[in-house]
Amino acid sequence: MSQPLLELADLGFAWPGQAELLDIPRFRLERGETLFLKGPSGSGKTTLLGLLGGVQTPGRGSIRLLGEQLERMSAGRRDHFRVDHIGYIFQQFNLLPFLSVRENVELPCRFSRLRADRARQRHGSVGQAATMLLEHLGLPAGLLGRRADALSIGQQQRVAAARALIGQPELVIADEPTSALDTDAREAFLHLLFAECRAAGASLLFVSHDQSLAGLFDRSLSLTELNRATKPVEI
């Protein structure tokens, strides 16, 4: 069996002063795979994504990304590693309002040389890469120079997707990116996202409380089943 992109073993995590939130015996994500991770709000989805990116460190257990153990790295090295290999899309308000759409997309290349190099290799320049991605994601070219907060929510999410994908990170993590969109826009957005992940060869880890999207993914999991830490059901 080939080495997975991401592998968790015996992961435990609690926020300071709180009960254990996550206790995950094992979890794998293959290269190029799209995975839907379902969980009610408050179940620890965002927290898990933070752990996968090395923003938080687990209380115990190990997180292997591309064969490297995140929890063994220094904080600075983890930060580097994250931006080199992971693109993030959040629920909403993904963009820095005071930067232009193009500058927002280029942000990861400002902090990661690897991604800037890859963007240049594939598209000639970072700016060209941003333009191409936005075009593929269906954003009108006239908007590139606009301030990010001048865009509609749907457009902003596409910009966020372009930013997550620029410089071809191996993993794209999406934290309920569609919950602010209406149903039609959701599917359209997902199809664009899939296509771009496939083109870039990236795996997609998509978390949401909205079960209806699960069928579109290669595989679907429930965090509550994965997580052994008992949690009272929220109303």
Binding site: D79, V83, F90, L96, P108, F111
Partner: peptide, 16 residues
């Protein structure tokens, strides 16, 4: 805080 979190997600280190 949001601005900082966005920056962190695109690779800014805390010292940034």
């Amino acid at each position: 805080r949001r601005e900082m979190a966005i920056l962190r997600s695109v690779g800014a280190r805390p010292w940034h």
